[in-house]
Nucleic acid binder design. Structure first.
Lengths: 215, 215, 215, 215
DNA sequence: AATGAATGAGTATTCATTCAT
DNA sequence: AATGAATGAATACTCATTCAT
């Protein structure tokens, strides 16, 4: 019952972003009112606009912070892996388990932030492009290393991002599979097969670093 | 059966839905005002609320009409095919080429209608579920017919929908690949491989029925 | 005590302009909130913005209506006069007596509408230019008719408008002279002298038409 | 006596007033935000409210400083003149040439500071009253000295202020006449005639003191 | 079926002012 | 004297929805 916010002592700037995460996760981008956000942040209208020039810029800052942390987490998980395919498997593993632990981040990043006119969307596209590029680089390396046959790695990495996106989205909307991480093995299997790789044994132990919070 | 090419003489109900398609494609769901829709439909506020109880229900009707036509088109394309895998390949082919021809439909159905709070999203999920179920049925049949090994067909069909979605989304936002249908062969290839099928030669000639308009 | 608005039956558009006249007279342009205007007009926000695209355009419409009526009244008063100097004297007479009867109009037109950044001011300048041009035309005619010597009629007519403006402004702010029309004879005298005319006997009987309301 | 040309080393109090002059000249009274003023003064919110109890009082101080300097300049120009009419002619000459040299002062004093509800306006009226009283005193002296016939000097001096105001206002808004001082001779002529004086030869050489800055 | 004027709760944003440091 | 983060009331404007005709 005691609703003392866990972030009471944080700087106003961060408290606003934290509050925005929750409100956007609950109500979507346009449903998230500045009023509710500042109430949840125990702040004020004036403070909000002291720290951010507009609601839209604030969301940009929020998405930037989220995706920076996510990319960092994923890259750390990839570092310890021996081959490109191991690395790409590790990245998928980390992505899924990170979202599984942080529903709200998934909600904001994957669901509640698109579909508001081309301008805004184009601005958030880069985040998904970042992941598909990370994947593509590893796939290219795998091709170079003869781990997999030559193929349209740009398209395939897009497909992977889409496949992951969809599976996580279903989980967000229906709760299935529960837990989300149950989907990881067959997901990895299908993805590996799609590029002509043996699905077996690329799934790595999840690195400790993946346990970190994103928001 | 012969559809009037413009909407000049169409009934008000349909004129509103046609106008809504354009406005939503241009401005997104929340950017699409009832005012602009009725202006483009040469109708009036009163007429709008005579035909639809609310903006949201109108969009539901619009999405329903769109996805019904889409499903119908896809199913017709599948009918003539000999095996489950041929059918599934035909469905993907049709989906891609149909969206390629009808950008606005893709825009509305895939991009501009999600991300507005859980309630609304849950309501539009079924359309995507319909496609993943259509795919799953064929994959199950393919498993039964020993065309492919046993696997988590539910998950895989979701992944396929996601992969398709992503590729088409990129096309909507970046214009790449141009034309979209260039993506079909590698897309089919990767999808087929992901289920352990030989990618070769499932791509069918596109049935004439796929040429029909959806909206 | 009974505050039933005298304009209860008028069309919304006019009721809003009437209410705006009162509120602007009381609080000035920026002090006049849309909220208070629509309350006094027994209307609603939505109605306000149905009839006017913005507060600024509404004020433009208001000033337009006011100055149109004022010009019309003045011109009617001039019509019956025999010579250019009689006409110009009649116009000043009418102007003063009209403002004397309609304090709020004077307030809005002369006081509460300028000083809000160049854009807005430039837009309201034309009204004062109209009067100085009307005066200039008559002075030019008087020069042609040898009633007065040649002079810089453009500058003089501006000066006249300024002199009138100032006298009426003082009356608005201090209540002096009371009644304002007491100022008319010495005003006319000084103005006539300033152009080298005999001040005597140009003051006409005020035409009945000058009794009309402006707002 | 020697004023630093820029405001770099000036005390905060004066730097704020200088900055306010520029901002008000540019954006008008209500358009001038405290934020922009302190930025241009390289100061801070806290400092502003240390030196002034409110924005309104600050503007009062600004207008006070401006009109004090203006009155001083004008009075110095009058001192050397032989007769009341020479003095009054000198004051007008000085006024016009001073405003011509200091557009911003004219802007603030004559244009951007009125029209914001009665309270504020009444507070700035005194400055204009000061000038009309200075003029009236000289006119009364001229009447006593039989330079001009008896007349309503109070009203006439108001008219003079108004006429001057209007001519300068036009110059501010339209740039005409260019230079403003071109208007001085006909202006003086018409004003002198308006009180029954021979317009010839009251125009004095502009005193050196008129060259001083006001702000 | 159709019209369009009217409604009012809701929105993002501004801004003079306060206050702890 | 000075700083700048914080405040919150106020603002113009939007928009889905209603309703008399």
């Amino acid at each position: 019952m005691s609703k003392a916010p866990a972030n009471a002592a944080a700087a106003t700037y961060d408290r606003i972003l934290d509050a925005a995460t929750e409100v956007i996760a609950q109500r979507g981008y346009s449903g998230a009112g500045v009023q509710e956000i500042i109430e949840r942040a125990s702040s004020s209208k004036g403070s909000f606009y002291f720290h951010f020039p507009s609601k839209e810029k604030m969301v940009e800052a929020l998405v930037g912070r989220m995706s920076d942390k996510l990319v960092e987490t994923v890259q750390e998980a990839m570092e310890g892996q021996p081959t490109p395919l191991h690395r790409v498997a590790a990245s998928i593993d980390t992505l899924v388990s990170t979202f599984a632990r942080q529903r709200k981040v998934a909600q904001v990043l994957l669901l509640n932030i698109i579909g508001h006119g081309r301008e805004t969307d184009r601005r958030f596209l880069p985040m998904r492009e970042r992941f598909s590029q990370m994947i593509q680089e590893e796939l290219d390396a795998a091709v170079s290393a003869d781990q997999i046959p030559p193929q349209d790695t740009a398209l395939v990495s897009q497909m992977w991002v889409g496949a992951l996106h969809e599976v996580i989205l279903r989980w967000l909307l229906t709760g299935q599979p529960s837990p989300l991480t149950n989907a990881t093995p067959p997901l990895q299997g299908a993805l590996m097969r799609s590029i002509g790789a043996e699905p077996a044994s690329f799934t790595p132990a999840i690195a400790a670093s993946a346990r970190r919070r994103l928001s």
